[in-house]
Amino acid sequence: MARVTLAQALNQALRDSLAADPEVVVYGEDVGPLGGVFRVTDGLFAEFGEDRCFDSPLAESGIAGTAVGMAMYGRRPVVEMQFDAFAYPAFQQVVSHVAKMRNRTRGNVELPLVIRIPYGGGIGAVEHHGDSSEAYYAHTPGLRVVTPATVADGYSMLREAVESPDPVVFLEPKRRYWSSEDVELPVRTAPMDRAVVRREGGDLTVIAYGPTVDTALLAAEAAAEEGYDAEVVDLRSLSPFDDETVTASVRRTGRALVVHEAPGFAGYGGEVAARVTEQCFHYLEAPVLRVCGLDIPYPPPHLEEHHLPGVDRILDAIDRLQWESAWVPDTRPVQAPQARAGVGA
């Protein structure tokens, strides 16, 4: 076992992907000799040469667009967008071409490519360096959108993303880049389209992903001291959504809240809440709550603590899950037998 950071695990995943498949190429802004502004591509240029890892001009739409062309020719490009907000120029390429090429061509042209995007706040950066842009991508059919929360997942999910026949938007929680775990690489964890229960609990389900999974786990520990036994589900894949794992958890606990950094309004948490409600309605003891970023542009670093969902806000939300009005089973005999449509079927 070695102590490995998330950035190192991602780096190793890229290295092993390059070694495993000669079609894999890694490129983007500053990913060559510098090794990327977060050093995720550190050493790849030296080890694999500029045929396999290279700097591109500073133009995100061009990066995404050329990746489409390379994938059309059979390569597997893994491109880096330097920061969440700097990926927006590539949005048209991602939405109109990356996501749709397989569909437009009736499956004749597939685009096995990965777009890596460091996202989220909490690193004390100035504006345009802290956006949580996941909902834009998750809203786009044809993309797989995944985000690792652990070091082991960082390695495993990136390997799997590179191997995927579908285009993958790989969102890296940048404030977790330097968090470390004892892990032996290479490692393979659960399939990247499945959610994982990070902490088991019987009273409520906290649904989180990427940068907020650690926060949710900390909150669960604090909640335990207050008498609540929280289960924490790490979604891992935002699209497709693992209904099975989430539904099973919420049907067991009867209460759910979803946590993310992005503004709550029209955000990913709304989708989670709607799905949970649709599929667990008769099991719910309280409305599904969202603990999200404020509905403001990402704040300056001195104020970001107010914006980011922390342990206290999660605990406050747990308090609001209507514990005082717990549902009591109605044990009176049923007068006329009525078949109830299969719940959630």
Binding site: G65, G69, G74, Q93
Partner: peptide, 9 residues
């Protein structure tokens, strides 16, 4: 840019 990527590859 698709043409650029394809021919470059």
């Amino acid at each position: 840019s698709h043409a650029v990527g394809l021919t470059y590859a």
